[in-house]
Nucleic acid binder design. Sequence first.
RNA 1: GCCCCUGUAGCUCAGUCGGUUAGAGCGGCGGCCUUUUAAGCCGCGCGUCGCGGGUUCGAAUCCCGCCGGGGGCACCA
Length: 493
Amino acid sequence: MSEPSDEPKLSDVLRDRREKLGRIREAGIEPFPHEFSQREDIAEVRAAHEGLAPGIETESRHRVAGRIAARRGHGKACFLDLRDGSGQIQLHAREDLLGAEAYELLVDLDLGDIVGVEGTAMATRRGGELSLAIDRWRLLSKSLRPPPDKYHGLEDTETRFRRRELDLIANEDSRRVFRIRARTISEVRRWLDEHGYIEVETPVLQPLYGGALARPFVTHHNTLDRDLYLRVATELYLKRLVVGGIDRVYELGKDFRNEGVSHKHNPEFTMLEWYEAYSDYEKTAHDLELLVAEVAERVLGTTVVKRGEVEIDFAPPWRRITLREAILERSGIDIAEHPSREALARAIGGEPDPSEGWGKLVDGLLSRDVEPGLIQPTFVFDYPTELSPFAKAHRSEEGLVERWEAFAGGVEIANSFSELNDPDEQRRRFEQQAAEIARGDDEAQPYDEVFVEALEQGMPPTGGVGLGIDRLVMMLVGAANIREVLLFPAMRS
RNA sequence: GCCCCUGUAGCUCAGUCGGUUAGAGCGGCGGCCUUUUAAGCCGCGCGUCGCGGGUUCGAAUCCCGCCGGGGGCACCA
């Protein structure tokens, strides 16, 4: 659908618009003028005349601009729907107000053309719809391609995702999703800023990747003649900043993981990570439920969101359960009774993949049996050490680390731990990861000496959180697919 | 990577036990209409039936391959 403009055979629709453009130029009208200043947002005009009684014609003049979304002609008058970024308003165009020539040119416009108009506010007699009775107008940009169907909108998913501009033109639902996304990100920032966190930017291109169990994208720096990785997480750099004395730090940006796409995965996605010194995973859990509830309240006006038929309430406190209990509850398997890889594999019943250690098997139980059932916001606490190379050992449970993951709508939305700050223990964890790599796990962590040395410098006890922004937005808008909340999601091609 | 489904006009879709010239609504074009609301009325179909090959007297329809999309599996803190 992205053929060049000199395609050999234009459809009649396209040809007609080209011809119309020619006629406009011949008439001495510039179809792409430079500006249309001193206009009001359509939403402001609407607000100024809310509740105007049917049949009333005011003297109140307004100047607005936007795209023509629909037209209903009546001979020597017509109605146009004009939409800008703030909203939509009806225009009443009458030949007696505009003059014959201006009226004819207006009627000759196409749906999708962008115009600026001036007129007085009125409400129609029967419907009482607020309208502008226009007496001046000007073409601001000629549209050479037809807009999507004005009633059905644009439904083809491929076109909606590949040509998001058409989706935004056609579908109010889509416009709403991305307004909510923007407000969500801004409210998350505001919450962190107000709680004393410093926002930072760390490298996206990294000589060594780390901070998450994931495969990276590899790229190449030409003049340095070396491979670099696109970050899979911001974790290790942010903790170095905590070592540096930034006690409350966060970064909100893209991570990249070389993985397949699914309804909850996109190769590049927006992640928030924050770290608070002198804190632990109990505190971060409390902060997360507070943050999400406050953001939902500010963005949506409620902590309750609908997801299909189900209502999810983000008001704290969220349910808390240990990983062991969660798995026992959903699968009947008590992982504590099967401490070896072989025993657990036997309990599950499948033949274990040689690249899967005990931790991976536990992880499999979690994502297959537990995660889909966690609809109301839930913290799952206390994970196997093997799965969490950067989390601190549990203060009382052998073999576990102080880590939780938060789930809602059957999807993981956040992850947190009491950060490991013992450099020697961190070294041992990296060695464990090396063993996983040797076993064939290509998502294990490469050894990062600079990071360990940073810990040797001394890092205070710290709580850290990663919150998946796309997934949070999915929850807030009730989307079942991550692509609905990404403007330009990854597509096969 | 595997399995299933799918691709028809600018948009939304019908048509597929193989059979005349491929249809509808919206949009577009021409005409009527000065308070409509998916405005209405009259007339006009604007098309590489995803692409390539095959079977057949005849293919949108059946077969094979390719490309795009969707769903599921796998993968994925």
